[in-house]
Amino acid sequence: MLRYPAPLERVIEEFERLPGIGPKSAQRLAFFLLSRPRDQAQALGETVLLLHEGIQPCAECGNYAAARLCPVCADDTRDKLVLCVVETATDLMALERAGEYRGLYHVLGGALSPLAGVGPAELRIGELLERVQRYGTEEVILATSPTVEGDATAEFLRQRLSATAPQVKISRIALGLPVGADMDYADQVTLARALRGRTPM
């Protein structure tokens, strides 16, 4: 069987490792790069390398940062008495895009998942408790996913925070129907959660 030249095969294989990229897409991307001028491929390669050379976890919150602190932790105008706990840096970015929150974040690095082998020791829980003490935090917002894993993580954090910092107000982001959703199409689990989490008005 006729095969592509080895360097091309390698590029296709590397693209195939990326999430959401199958063999056909990998092949298309590799051929696209081959059809472009050399400096474009070089620029892409160098930019990808910079990911690991130029990005590090923020020394405070664990977000991706180009310096010791991420832009949120380095911003003096943020409210340092409120801490929002998220699973990943992409969750942090999603909340930032909402433009509603002016406090600090704490990135856990995942959620408790026995099936994925993620226990309390694999998450940045000790760092969270230490930051709450050091900052004199007044409120911790638990913004983990509305999944079994996210709920278990939130509940575990609530217990740990209540034990180590009983003066801190602990809240959970509201869970329920998305904006614009048709009630008729919502599943029973979501509707039950929306009812349990109702707020007075």
Partner: peptide, 14 residues
């Protein structure tokens, strides 16, 4: 995705 009618039932133990 928000509004998925299957999201609740694919959660473990449902």
């Amino acid at each position: 995705k928000p509004g998925s009618s299957l999201a609740g039932v694919v959660e473990p133990f449902a």
